[in-house]
Structures are given as C-alpha cells and as structure tokens.
Amino acid sequence: MTTATPHLLPGTEIAIESLPKVSLHDHLDGGLRPQTIIELADAIGLELPATDAAALGAWFAEKSDSGSLVEYLKTFDVTTAVMQTREGLERVAREFVLDLAADGVVWGEIRWAPEQHLTRGLSLDETVEAVQAGLDAGVEEARGAGHRIRVGQLVSAMRHADRGREIAELALRHRDRGVVGFDIAGAEAGFPAGRMRDAFDLLAASFFPATVHAGEADGLESIRGALLDGRALRLGHGVRLLEDITLTEEGGSTIATLGPVAEWVKDRQIALETSPSSNLQTGAIAAWGDAMVDHPLDLFYQLGFRVTVNTDNRLMSATTLSRELALVAEAFAYDLDDLLALQLNAAQAAFLPVEDREALMDTLIDGFEGAL
C-alpha cells in the first residue's frame, strides 16, 4: 500500500521513500491492497464489510487498533480468504513486491503461513510455488521500472497447530527456490516455541535460519523459549525483552542493568524485529505506555542492541516502512545517520550469505550518502 505524499525526515526535505531500505518483518497476508481484496472477493463470492477500497482500508485499520493481538489477528480471516487459489496468491505476491519497491525497499523478507492457504485444493508445495511465481513477476516488473529489489520467502508455521515439522520440511524443500528462512506465527501466549522443538531440531541440523515471534503478546519466558528451543537468530518484535532490563537513576544519569536473557540477545546481536505501529495497536508495549515515544526501540538502540524497524502488516496498520521510520524519527529525534544505522542493523540480520549482506550494506550507505 503506497502513499502519494512522501514522508520527510523531520527537519529536512529528504523523502524517506527515496532512501534504500531493508524489510525483515512484513506479512504477505497483512499487506494486500484493499482494491485487490474487493476484486478477489468478488471472484469467489465472498462478502466483505465494505466494497469501497478506502472504506475497506479504514475498516482494517479500525479493527486492528484493539490493544489485543488476538483481536488483531481476526482481521486476517478476510485476507487469507482471498488467498486460497494460485491466481490469488500470485497476484497478492506480485503486488506486494511492487509496493515494497515503490517504498524504496531493496531487500525484503516476506513471511506467510502456507498451511492457511489450502481450502481450495492447493497443496503446501503448490502454495509456495504460486507465491514464488508472484514474487518473481513482481521483481521483474519492479526492476523494469528502475527499482533495485530482491526478496525472499520466510515460511511460517502456525503456533496453535501441530504441523511444525511438516512446515519445516516444506521450507527446506524450497530453500534453493526462494525460501530463505523459517518462522512461527499466530497467538503467542500459551503456544511456546518448545511445542515445535522437533521442527527447530530439523532446521538446526540442516543449518537453516529461523526467526521466532516472541516478546510481543507474551513475556520473557516466550523469548527464552525462542532462543533455547527455536535457536532464533532474530526475534519477531521482541519488545518485552525490556522486562529483563532494569533502569535506575544515579547522579542524574540513567543506568541500565541487563538480565541474562537481554545480555545474551545484545552480546550475540540477535536482531529485534520491532514494528512500532503494530506494537502499539496490539498492546505489546502497554506496560510502558501507549504512545510512540514510549516504545522501547530507542532504549534498545541506545544500548547497542541490533534493533530494526518494520511494518508487520501494512494493511492493518495503514502504514509503510517509510512511514514507520518517519514516526520513530519524530518520536526520538533521529537524524539520517540514525536511520542508516537502523537499516544497517537490518542488513546485517538479513537471511542472506555474508557477501550479499556486505553488498547490501554498501547499497544502503551509497543511497544514504546520495541523499545529502
């Protein structure tokens, strides 16, 4: 979902859309264009809460701003319903890439759960192949329009289901055909990573990277499980890691003392995939406040964590990566160097070979220097 008005870095005339960016946490079924939903729904006879694109987009934003991850997730019943055919998956994936490219994304990891797209006869492998076809078409079209973009799939298993190993095997079958990593998603509380230990064992034995949603709707034990059972190289959101950091005032200065989990995440540079607007919508940071300035990402950044900024679900949050960066820049008085640091964090955490990560960082540096 693109916007006509660019988001300027506060105090400058620099449009954030013009800067190269890395997107690590962006759900395929959370990034549909409202008009596409209307057209796909019409083709399958699905009744929608609104049949005007603007009104439908507003409905998603309103329903998602509930303060509850469980309620937030209910909006996906609509988007996944129109993503049950090869044609639907290909179109959504193609447009997803085009929207990322229009926002200046040069590397995007696109996560989704194939097991949620089987109601109209597709097999798991066929869904992955359909999404990859759409991604490939989107990349080709975007490059034809002058954009520099690469993308990879993150195959997710749903935490409440018992298909973890099956989905891990699926990801491994497609590791050389577009799939770059594994994830678990869905309701976090009550469904720890340990439920899928066999899947994570298989992935570890196959040297395949995983990111795990943790520290969004559950606390420190969920993060601990993601690290121990999931061998997570990144934490999806991870904002409740703040529960393991104690802040004290000494002589006019604030001193941060890290607990063992926070220290492990920082010292090993396990990336935090924060999604500021989404984290406010779902109540993930409710213990510390309800405004952007209350988000712990700045504290993580100041303490040297590998913190990144993401969109999570562009449709539900009515957002883009450029908008998210503009919001945090406004909240925390970030300048161009800060935004570059956040992008370099994301590049270093990307599920890419080291040579590709280094080339990606060069692209980011060149693009940001060119904005001056």
Rank of each mutant, 00 (worst) to 15 (best):
L327K: 09
A157D: 05
L19F: 02
E87Y: 09
T257C: 07
A189Y: 08
R234L: 13
M83K: 04
L56F: 05
R177D: 10
H7E: 03
L56H: 03
F208T: 06
A54P: 01
L135K: 02
L202W: 15
L303Y: 14
K63S: 10
Q281N: 10
D65V: 01
T211F: 06
G57D: 03
T5Q: 14
L154T: 09
Q269S: 15
R175K: 13
A187I: 14
T3C: 11
E90Q: 14
A113E: 01
M292K: 01
R231V: 07
G194L: 07
G186S: 05
E141G: 10
H237K: 07
D176N: 14
I365L: 12
D26T: 08
T2P: 00
R148M: 10
V307K: 02
A130Q: 08
L227P: 09
R165W: 03
I110Y: 02
V309Q: 00
G194E: 08
G251M: 08
A185W: 01
T246P: 07
L235P: 03
V139W: 04
F76K: 00
E250N: 09
S18Q: 15
V293F: 10
D356H: 12
A318C: 07
A4P: 05
A193S: 15
D294G: 03
L336F: 00
Q269R: 12
F96N: 08
R240E: 07
D176T: 13
A81F: 03
A318V: 02
D298R: 11
P296W: 04
V106M: 04
T308A: 11
L32H: 00
R195G: 13
F96V: 04
G194H: 11
G45D: 13
I16Y: 00
R323V: 07
F191Q: 12
R195K: 14
V131C: 08
P34W: 01
E140T: 15
R177K: 12
Q35L: 15
E17Q: 13
S322T: 01
E47N: 13
E216P: 01
D298V: 06
G178E: 11
A145N: 14
A217D: 15
G251H: 13
E141R: 10
L135W: 02
P192F: 04
E129G: 05
W264Q: 12
G30T: 05
H117L: 04
V239F: 10
L242A: 15
G181T: 08
V293D: 11
R224K: 15
G259A: 10
D136I: 10
A137L: 09
R268T: 08
T274E: 04
T79G: 02
G152C: 06
A113F: 01
R306W: 05
L364E: 04
L170S: 10
V293G: 14
R306I: 03
L8H: 00
W59E: 04
T211M: 10
G190V: 13
A287S: 14
A284H: 01
L321G: 02
D52I: 11
I365G: 00
E129D: 11
R143N: 13
L228N: 12
S123P: 07
D77H: 09
E263M: 06
P209H: 06
A81Y: 02
L172D: 04
V97L: 08
E273M: 05
L336V: 01
D229F: 12
G370L: 05
A171R: 02
V309K: 00
G57E: 03
L342D: 03
G283F: 12
Q348A: 13
R111V: 04
S23N: 09
E141L: 15
L24I: 08
L202P: 07
G178F: 05
A101Q: 09
T274Q: 03
I285F: 07
P296S: 10
